[in-house]
Each structure stands twice: as structure tokens, then as C-alpha cells.
Simulated assay, not measured.
Amino acid sequence: MSRLAPWLAPLGLLISISLVACQDSSTRDSSQSESLKVVVSTTILTDLTQRIGGDAITVTGLLQPGDDPHVYEPVPRDTVALAGANLIILNGYNLEPKIEKLATSVDSQAAILRAGEAIAPLKLGRAPDPHVWGNARNGILMVQAIQQKLCQLQPSDCPQFQANAQALSQDLTRLNTWILQQIATIPESQRQLVTTHDAFQYYSQAYQLPVLGTLIGISTEEQPSARTVQTLAKVIRETGVPVIFTETTTNSSLLETVADEADVRLSRQPLYADAIGPAGSKADSYIKMLVTNTQTIVDELGGKTTSFQAD
């Protein structure tokens, strides 16, 4: 046995190292498997959730850039994602009715957060207006709601969530001031907004840019009547609005009819109403979406914009 000992010692050391490596690997795998699985409806909320959660959570966004939440039809992979979630984040206020119906019916123990309902809604008729993100200060309230829910469900990473949410909220506070400054450069006689659907009431109220009219109401599922088209065209002619704005998630053909009848032009760039832009675009985050929309509106209505850079 004494002659074998010199061989056994290194072998024992190798086995010990292997066991430690296996334990480390097991620990890492366990930690990764315990990462909070968060499924999010809209691209706006997906962006905010990813920025708050960082690498401490796993985020799955159901809608992709350009998808219209009002009319989105869930697909089988959405059911799978929702069933495996620890947390489901929706906008609420009936923005994404088919996703909400699926989220509340799927066999899941997930917590559900309706982040948009952290904001007291404006009303259009009897219905609450779900487009709360148009006001950057409302964005801060959604950030806080998401951060608090993540801390509740994964307290070990709460300091990271809080730090990320604070940095994001600071950027949104600066953005809110910047938007007010940009809108103020539009000549007062031209400071009116005409869009495809009623998605900019929060933006309008927060930044003192009256919505003169829209072709359809809250949901893009609505279809305007010929009378609506004629009435809107008449109002535009009477007020002298120089341009009306198309949107990325809606068909612009009917608005083209309004523009022809009112003898005004369509905006050169569409507004991002219900979704951020694709990766690499100038509106591929919530902050950049609000910046891009503001620059488009101000430039088209005769104002002058400055650049905005988030920290």
C-alpha cells in the first residue's frame, strides 16, 4: 500500500477538484433555474421590465415591435410561456384583451401585475384610456410598480432592481422636462394634433398639445364612418392644421383620404403609438420612442428640437 500512495494522492486530489467543480456547476445551474420567469405583453413594458430586472430575471415579451396589442391574436407559444411564468405583466385597462383573457385562464400559478393600472386613467366616453405611457411621468409610476413586484417575488435581487429603477426614473424625469421644452417651440397656432386613433391623450394633457381629432377611438379595431371622415376633414380645414400624423401600427389609407379632403399632408414619419420600434431603430426603447415621437411632432408642426441623451 505504501508504494501505491504516491499515485493515490494525486488521484484523490483530482477527484476532490472534480467534485467541487460539479458542486459549483450544480449551484450555478440551480441559481439559473430559479431565476424569475417574467412574461410581458407589450413591447413598451418588455423594455421597462428588462431594464429594471437586468440579468437577474428571464423576460419573455409576447408582442414584437410593430404588433398592435388591441388586435393581437395569441399563438401556441404564448400559452406555453404564460403557463411557465412566475410573473405576468400586462398593461391593463383592456389594452390587450385577448392576451389578458389567456393570461387569466391558463393553468399557471403566476402573479399578475397590470402595470398600466398604477395610473389613474383618463376617460374616453365610459372606458378608461389604456395608453398611459404617453406621459413620461406615468412611465415612472409603471417602473415603480414593476420594481416593487420584482422585489416582492425575488427579494435577494431587490437592491439591483431598485438601483436600475432609480436610474431609469431619473432618465424619465429628465425626458419629461425635455418634451415640455420641445413642444413649447411649436407656434401656438399650429399646436394641435391629429392622429389615426386615440392613443395620445396622456401625451396631449401632459405636454399641452391639444388633440384636435382622431379618425378612430381608443381601439384600432374600430372602423370610421364616411361621416367621421368628412367631419374630421372639415375641422382640419377650418383650423388650418398643417399636417396629420400616421402611426406605425395602423393602416394609413383612411387617413390619406382625410388628408386629401382637408388638403393637408401626412407626416413624413409615422408616430409610434402602441409599440416601440424594432431593434436598431431610432425608437427601439420606451425612452427613444417618446423622444422620436416628440421630434417628429415638433419638426412637422414648425418647432425646433434639440437632442436628448439618456444617462
Score class of each variant (00 low, 15 high):
A110K: 00
Q147R: 15
A120S: 13
Q147Y: 04
P187E: 12
A115M: 00
I183G: 02
C158P: 08
T173F: 05
E188Y: 10
P121V: 04
A120D: 14
I186H: 14
S189A: 15
S169P: 03
A115D: 01
L153C: 14
N138Q: 05
L168F: 15
I119K: 05
R137N: 11
S189M: 07
I183E: 07
P159C: 10
P128W: 04
R137I: 06
A111V: 11
A145V: 03
P159T: 07
W133R: 11
I179F: 13
K123C: 03
I186Q: 11
A118E: 02
T177Y: 06
N176G: 10
T185I: 13
Q182A: 04
L175W: 13
Q166R: 11
P155T: 10
C151S: 15
N135G: 10
Q170Y: 08
P128S: 08
G116V: 03
A110V: 04
Q182H: 05
D129H: 07
I146W: 02
Q160P: 00
L180G: 15
R126C: 02
C151F: 01
A118M: 01
L153E: 13
A145T: 04
A120P: 02
E188A: 15
I140R: 12
L153F: 15
L172V: 10
G125C: 07
H131E: 08
L172F: 08
C151Y: 07
N138L: 05
Q147H: 08
C158I: 08
A163L: 06
A145D: 05
A111H: 12
I179G: 12
Q160W: 01
D157L: 06
Q181I: 08
F161M: 03
I183T: 12
L122V: 07
V143I: 14
N164C: 05
A163R: 05
Q170V: 14
L113Q: 01
K123I: 11
G125Y: 07
D171C: 10
Q182K: 11
F161R: 00
A111W: 02
N176Y: 13
V143E: 06
R126G: 11
D157E: 15
A127K: 14
L113G: 05
Q182C: 10
I179E: 04
A115T: 00
P159L: 11
L124E: 11
S169Y: 06
Q148C: 00
Q154H: 07
L141E: 10
A136T: 03
I140Q: 13
A120I: 09
V132N: 07
G134F: 12
G116E: 00
L124C: 04
E117S: 03
L175T: 09
D129V: 03
F161P: 02
P159A: 09
L150H: 05
G116N: 04
E117R: 02
V143N: 01
N138C: 07
N164R: 04
S189W: 02
L113H: 09
G134L: 09
P130M: 01
A163C: 03
W133Q: 08
I119C: 10
A111Y: 14
R114T: 00
C158G: 06
G134M: 13
